[in-house]
């Protein structure tokens, strides 16, 4: 029953996204990837497979992050601003269902964009003679889970602040969380016990976006696929974290006057 409500809302988001020609941006970005590959080909340098793969996963990660954040950050504020929220909330659905449906739509729109970019990147890599490997499927799967978490974080932030502030903070979190975690691991051993507890706390609440990116293993040679328990664990973590974020957004939105 709930799934039907979520799906109805998600389909609306997806349809709007498609008709608004958001995917044109994706197509343009994809063309940039193809053009960049063409430029590499133009240089005529042999043996750039590793670099091409590295470039591919880097650009994919960058573009898909931008799309996820920009798609999600305006979703809820625009509903309020344009008053499209009222006819929705007048229906016999809870505000949680509304958030869940919107998140589902944002994730599906982001995934669609990612799959298109992935397809274009794959074509570009095939032109470079890059071989298909199982780890690439794992890369796509984990990346999509990570993008889902990012959408949840952005949606939650947009419930608490303006769309531009939410987008900016989402970018900081998306690109900075790995750096922060890195800093924590470097400073941990030489810190006081109190600070170590603080570091553990920070590490536990930060979204671990870096874990969903196995790009370096894909780009470089002879790395084994990620163990299945890790894939399963990341899937569970992603669902739990996105769920937590959704609950946080709901705690703000449930009694918010609109």
């Amino acid at each position: 029953m709930k799934l039907r409500v979520w799906w109805a809302l998600a389909r609306g988001v997806l349809l709007e996204s498609l008709r608004r020609k958001d995917l044109w941006v994706v197509a343009i970005l994809g063309m940039i990837i193809m053009a960049a590959s063409g430029a590499l080909g133009f240089f005529g340098v042999e043996g750039l497979q590793t670099f091409a793969k590295d470039l591919g996963v880097t650009v994919l990660g960058l573009f898909s992050t931008v799309i996820a954040i920009l798609t999600t950050s305006r979703l809820l504020p625009d509903e309020i601003k344009n008053r499209t929220l009222y006819p929705l909330l007048a229906r016999p659905i809870s505000r949680f269902d509304l958030l869940a449906g919107k998140l589902m739509g944002a994730i599906l729109a982001t995934w669609l964009a990612f799959v298109i970019l992935l397809a274009l990147t794959s074509v570009a890599l095939l032109m470079f003679g890059v071989r298909f490997e199982v780890i690439m499927v794992q890369y796509a799967l984990l990346k999509m889970v990570g993008l889902g978490v990012l959408c949840a974080v952005t949606l939650t932030l947009s419930a608490f602040m303006t769309p531009s502030a939410a987008a900016t903070l989402s970018f900081v979190v998306a690109f900075g969380s790995s750096m922060i975690v890195r800093g924590l691991t470097m400073a941990y051993e030489t810190s006081s016990p109190a600070m170590q507890w603080f570091f553990k706390f920070i590490n536990s609440i930060l979204p671990q976006f870096g874990l969903f990116d196995i790009g370096p293993r894909v780009a470089n040679e002879n790395w084994a696929p990620v163990p299945l328990w890790v894939v399963g664990g990341l899937l569970a973590y992603g669902v739990a974290y996105a769920g937590g974020m959704l609950l946080l957004a709901w705690s703000k939105f449930r009694s918010q006057a609109v």
Binding site: L184, T185, Q196, F199, Q208, L211, P216, V230
Partner: peptide, 17 residues
């Protein structure tokens, strides 16, 4: 042995190069 993050560290070592 130098990572305080527990399972997060294990996962990162499994997912990163």
């Amino acid at each position: 042995e130098r990572d305080f993050r527990g399972v997060f560290g294990d996962i990162e070592r499994a997912t990163k190069a």
